[in-house]
Design a protein around this nucleic acid. Structure first.
Length: 486
RNA sequence: GACCCCAUCGUCUAGAGGCCUAGGACGUCACCCUUUCACGGUGAAGACCCGGGUUCGAAUCCCGGUGGGGUCACCA
């Protein structure tokens, strides 16, 4: 295979979301797998909807995801410009050539006329189709009206019969009836290109070899194919990957289910987990693998294992994958990742001292297997990082309001004052005290957990106390004793 | 509505005519581990959309239905 060049061509509108990331990812994986180039092109043709700063937003998204484009805005590979709006000269030139060759023609119909016609078609149950009014115009009339400054669009002179086959790398051959294609618009009256036209000109000029995009574009492909024919250029290969659907099976949209990446970031998802999940949504390397890194994916990716049917995305599974990656982080790494979430909640200062950092790390490790996201981790860590304020109501009833509760807590505080503060030492001390008092260990353990954390659930008590340290432990026990029943 | 795509547990999927008594994972439910909660372990429930063919044999091939999705712009 010749040098593979793929492109990801988002419009600058809105936030990068889950579908955005999946399409970018598949393109990147394909490029890597074949030693090719992954190009980013921003389709900002529609200036009305252009959003300033899109490039920075995209770069931030790529940086978070952990992979990025080889060529694109600010990363010239000799096939620029990478902003579609900057290729306007080419769009006009090619449109002019098509006009000169008689493969396209100016159309002076007004939008109102077209719309009326379309409404009529719909009413009669006919496929809406441009009737070809301006097809018949003589060269003289065209020249005259164009020179006269009458507004016009440029339409492709599309073939009227026959069929065209898309050789799709995921779906196989898909045939379309050309009689159903009308003379679609190439250049709008304002002199800017339409999507199908700009996209084709750009792909051709950028020497794109494979177009991997979402399934929703499959129906556009015959238009693009006849455009390549009209331009006398070889079309790239196409591969339409299945769409990602919202949990209710509806198409993802800004308003519906297309969760922005920024939100996953804010919710404390790890990018490697999101990427792992996305990679396996609509593709799999065969077998039972659930965990895959970008590097592994880049070695294994192949279009013939891309699914044909759309995939509903399910946050539960992504959360599970996230929890898996979270548990695998070492203490230092965990701290690095969690720190922003801790400082955002004022659980550690912006510039923690060595002691504060060490304590936070120990707490994080303690909570690591009990959280699925960094947000959950921070919330779990808060229990030990701050003084307990609220105590679990049922726990209070059971452990603080039982007869002798205060006495047990005080006795425990007294005993732990002089205990060795590691898990083994604490266990020995508590076991011994329970024996002396003639109560089950649990009679001390449960009230103690509630006393130091305010919760009835959490890490093993001995580990928790050893992390908490003597001072905090004893203080919290005494405070709890004060409010418990004697 | 027309055109196109698709169809395996609730979800993601394995499955390329006999290996399928349809496998795995998430989720759900039990049990084990245990000082609680997680983690981990074990197990259970849970699917080939329907109907016709083809074949000795079909989840796998063909046809038809049904269902879901997409596209039908001077949006991208």
């Amino acid at each position: 295979m010749a040098m593979v060049r793929v492109r990801f061509a988002p419009s600058p509108t809105g936030q990068p979301h889950i579908g955005w990331a999946r399409t970018a990812l598949f393109n990147w994986l394909f490029a890597r797998r074949h030693g090719g180039t992954f190009v980013l092109r921003i389709e900002d043709t529609d200036q009305k909807r252009a959003v300033a700063g899109a490039r920075e937003v995209f770069d931030a998204a790529f940086q978070w995801l952990g992979f990025t484009y080889d060529e694109g805005p600010g990363r010239d590979g000799g096939y620029g410009p990478y902003l579609q709006s900057q290729r306007i000269e080419s769009h006009r030139r090619v449109a002019g050539e098509l006009l000169d060759q008689g493969r396209a023609y100016p159309c002076f119909c007004t939008p109102e006329e077209i719309e009326a016609r379309r409404a009529e078609d719909r009413r009669l149950g006919r496929p809406p189709r441009y009737p070809g009014t301006c097809r018949q115009l003589s060269q003289e009339e065209r020249r005259r009206r164009m020179a006269g400054g009458e507004p016009y669009v440029i339409r492709l002179l599309a073939p009227e019969e026959g069929s065209i086959v898309v050789h799709d790398l995921v779906r196989g051959d898909v045939s379309f009836d050309l009689a159903l294609l009308d003379d679609f618009v190439l250049m709008k009256a304002d002199g800017t290109p339409t999507y199908n036209f700009a996209s084709v000109v750009d792909d051709a000029e950028m020497a794109i070899t494979h177009v991997l995009r979402a399934d929703e574009h499959l129906a556009n492909t015959p238009k693009q194919l006849i455009l390549y024919q009209a331009m006398g250029r070889t079309a790239p290969a196409f591969a339409h990957v299945p769409m990602i659907l919202a949990p209710d099976r509806a198409k993802l949209s800004k308003r519906h289910g297309a969760t922005p990446l920024a939100e996953f970031m804010a919710q404390g998802y790890l990018p490697e987990a999101v990427v792992n999940y996305l990679m396996l949504l609509g593709w799999n390397p065969g077998g039972d693998r659930e965990f895959l890194t970008l590097t592994e994916g880049a070695q294994l990716f192949s279009l013939d294992r891309v699914q044909k049917n759309p995939a509903v995305y399910d946050t539960q599974k992504m959360t599970w994958i996230n929890a898996h990656y979270l548990r695998q982080l070492g203490e230092e790494e965990l701290w690095q990742r969690a720190q922003p979430f801790l400082t955002a909640r004022d659980l550690v200062p912006d510039q923690p001292s060595a002691d504060q950092a060490a304590y936070a790390k120990a707490v994080l490790s303690l909570m690591q297997s009990r959280a699925s996201t960094l947000v959950e981790l921070a919330e779990a860590a808060a229990v030990l990082l701050t003084e307990p304020e609220e105590f679990d109501a049922q726990g209070v009833h059971r452990h603080f309001e039982s007869p002798g509760a205060a006495g047990r807590l005080t006795a425990l505080a007294d005993r732990l004052q002089g205990a060795t503060f590691d898990a083994a030492g604490l266990e020995a001390a508590i076991t011994e005290l329970a024996g002396e008092m003639g109560v089950a260990r649990a009679e001390l353990i449960h009230p103690a957990r509630l006393a130091v954390s305010g919760r009835t659930v959490g890490p093993g008590l001995f580990e928790m106390l050893s992390v908490l340290g003597r001072e905090r432990t004893v203080a919290r026990l005494r405070q709890a004793a004060a409010r418990a029943s004697s």
